[in-house]
Structures are given as C-alpha cells and as structure tokens.
C-alpha cells in the first residue's frame, strides 16, 4: 500500500481560558490532546464524539485553518504543522473544508456563479471568462444542480441546495483532501440522504480522501471506511467501520452506540445502561483515563494510569486498560428503573 495522504502525530491544540470572569489567571484547555492517526489515499475516516470533544478543532488543525500547539501533520510527505500563512498558500487548494452551515460560509450578497468564479480565480486555476463559465457549469452539474443556479443568491436556495454549492466550491480547487465538519447535520433526513449519496459518488469519481466529522453515528457508519472516537480531546478508539459497529473495543464507544436511537421499534429496550452524569470540564480533565469517572467497568488503575492507544489486531486500536469486544455484565445489566427518589403526584 502507498504511503498515507495524511499522517497526524501527537497533535495538540490548547486554548488559554480564564476560569471565571473574576480571575486574571488563565488555564490551558486541551481541546486536542496528543492525537495520532493516518488517512490513506481514497479513504474516508469518520470522526465521532460528543459535543466539545475536539472534533472541529482537530479538523481545523488538519486543514491548517489554525496552528497546532504541538505535534506533526504530514500531508503527502510534507510537514505542514508549522508552515506560516505565506508558506501555506501554494498548498491550500489541496485541502478544502465543507461546513455544517453553508449559509454562514457563503457570502449572502454574491450570486452562486460569482462565488464559484472567485474560488477558481484565487489560485489562478482556470483563467478566461469563457473557460471559467464552462467549469462553473461543470461543477454545478457535478453536484446535481442545473447551470442556471449560477444566477441565484444563497437565500434563494434550500438547505440542501446550499450544501451542494458548498461542496461545489470545495471541489472547484480540485482538492485531494476534503475535511467535512458536520456537513449534513443541518439538513432534513430526506435531503441528508441526497447529500451523502452525492459525497460518495464524488469520492468515487474523483478519488477524494475524506475526513468526515459528525456526531451522528448512523451517518458516520454509512460514509466511513474507518471510524475514530474522541472523548475530551483524546482519540479513544480507531477501527475499520464494520468491526467498530459490530463490536467496539472501548466501553465509551459501546455506551455511545447504545445511546443511539434505532429506527426499529422491535429493538426497544436493548439491555444497555446509559452513560451516567455529564461530561467533565475539559479544563480539569480527570486524571488517568479521562473516561473513568463515567465508566461502568473502571478499576483502580484507571484513575491513576492513562491507557495509551494500543493495537489490538486487525487494524483496531483502543485506549482502555480493559479493552474487549465483549460488553461486561456491568455494562449490560439493565439499569433497573431507578426508583425515583421522590414520589410524583399526590
């Protein structure tokens, strides 16, 4: 197999935050904390995790919209983690982002044609009005829109159509990596399916590599070759998609999957206990394994020693002292309908 297109090593991104409005002193919020992975050419790596776990921050680092605090990002063999804005310019077109809300990333006063033309001109990729017009029509067709859409303003488009324009703009530069951050989260189900199919088709036609971020585990299963799970800035599991969905190794992955409501009334009441409590503050992450405070199978070692992301064979990695494809009794015992602490009603 050829070398990966992207290799991320020990990537860190910290933000200085004030603990409260009354204090001057700042602390470090480790949004991405020592994350390593690689994405092969033509592959889609899906990233999942709860709100605030660091998915977008990781995406912005990889796309170099922000500078990592530490670590390395190799893109096609070139180190890009430390490049300055000027040094980044020639390689920008290789990595393009697709955002959740296309409306906020499209200039509301510019017509679709103008938005795409600007993308084409920035890198001097296609010059001459006639050739640009032809390319704009081709791009619109690629994303399933008629060329007449070039005359429309963003507000004259539906949510799905706007996301198609967002994708067309990313494709304009013929990127090699697409970083899609929640690209279908704002869309209705029936339209979401159209956009997911479109992304898949384009990937096959153009040989794109994709880093696909979503909090929706169903969507991620559908598009990804491999899946990574983040928790409080850490990558806690990384595995081929099918193996991951069949039998994840990390108790957090299992709990996350078990929380997803399935569109099947017969699957109701699966014997899994929901994760208890809230996510700890990322400013004061728990010592040892970050998940130990909510983990149903935590042992003493988990609060002392942080488990590294370890290879468990067949391309499956997990960061857990007790990684196993089988749920333990403690995870599956049906959460006995907790007797409520107070009697309701009279």
């Amino acid at each position: 197999m050829s070398a990966p297109l992207v290799t991320v090593k020990n990537l860190k991104k910290t933000f200085p935050v004030r603990e409260s409005v009354f204090r001057r002193a700042t602390r470090e919020l480790r949004a991405v904390d020592d994350v390593s992975f690689a994405v092969s050419r033509g592959e889609t790596l899906g990233l999942v995790g709860e709100s605030g776990c660091g998915k977008s921050t990781l995406a912005r680092c990889v796309a170099r919209l922000t500078e990592p605090s530490d670590g390395s990002i190799l893109f096609d063999g070139q180190e890009i983690a430390r490049l300055s804005t000027r040094e980044l310019r020639p390689m920008r077109r290789n990595i393009q982002l697709v955002f959740q809300d296309p409306m906020s990333s499209l200039n509301p006063r510019k017509r679709v044609g103008t938005i795409l033309r600007e993308a084409l001109s920035i890198q001097g990729l296609v010059s001459g009005r006639a050739r640009q017009d032809a390319r704009i029509a081709e791009l619109l067709e690629q994303v399933g829109l008629s060329p007449t859409f070039a005359g429309r303003l963003p507000r004259e488009l539906s949510g799905g159509q706007r996301q198609r324009i967002g994708i067309a703009r990313a494709l304009a530069l013929e990127p090699r990596l697409i970083v899609a951050d929640e690209p279908v989260s704002a869309l209705d189900v029936s339209v979401q399916a159209q956009i997911l199919n479109l992304l898949k088709d384009l990937q096959e036609q153009l040989g794109l590599t994709m880093l696909f971020i979503s909090h929706d585990l169903g969507v991620v299963r559908h598009v990804s070759d491999r899946v990574g799970v983040m928790y409080l800035g850490k990558l806690v599991e990384l595995a081929p998609a099918d193996a991951f969905y069949e039998a994840p190794l990390h108790p957090y992955s299992r709990a996350l999957l078990a929380s997803v409501p399935l569109p099947d009334p017969a699957a109701r009441g699966r014997a899994v206990r929901p994760i208890e409590g809230d996510m700890p503050s990322p400013i004061y992450p728990p010592a040892g394994c970050r998940f130990h405070t909510r983990c149903p199978i935590a042992q003493e070692i988990c609060s002392r020693t942080e488990p590294p992301l370890t290879d468990h064979g067949n391309g499956r990695l997990a960061a857990c002292h007790f990684a196993s494809p089988f749920a333990s009794a403690r995870e599956t015992e049906r959460a006995a309908p907790q007797p409520s602490q107070a009697k309701m009603g009279d």
Binding site: A193, L196, L217, V219, Y245
Partner: peptide, 12 residues
Amino acid sequence: SIPAANRGKVRR
C-alpha cells in the same frame, strides 16, 4: 433514507 447505526453500509 435513514442511515441507521444498526444498518450495514449500502452503496446508496
């Protein structure tokens, strides 16, 4: 059209 987490990957 739901890409459910318990459904295997389909082409479309």
